[in-house]
């Protein structure tokens, strides 16, 4: 069975995915806030948002 990646490994991979080469101690620092950031998302996932359009909607008919 494969072990789940640690939060640090996840953050390191996400930074790399965005092309960011970050010193190791700063990856540690960002990884230490990852859990709180995800908790924030989970809190919003508790809301009923069915049928609510996102606040920013692109109108393809537009043009300046």
């Amino acid at each position: 069975m494969t072990e789940s990646p640690s939060e640090r490994e996840l953050v390191q991979a996400l930074l790399e995915m965005h092309g960011l080469d970050v010193p190791s101690d700063e990856v540690d620092a960002l990884a230490s806030t990852f859990g709180d950031a995800r908790a924030m998302v989970e809190r919003l996932r508790g809301l009923d948002l069915s049928g609510v359009a996102p606040a920013v909607v692109f109108d393809p008919r537009g043009g300046e």
């Binding site: 919003l44 948002l49 920013v56």
Partner: peptide, 12 residues
């Protein structure tokens, strides 16, 4: 998906 959800929260 988090970003879109946040924009929905904002609209609500």
């Amino acid at each position: 998906a988090d970003y879109v959800m946040a924009q929905q929260v904002r609209r609500r």
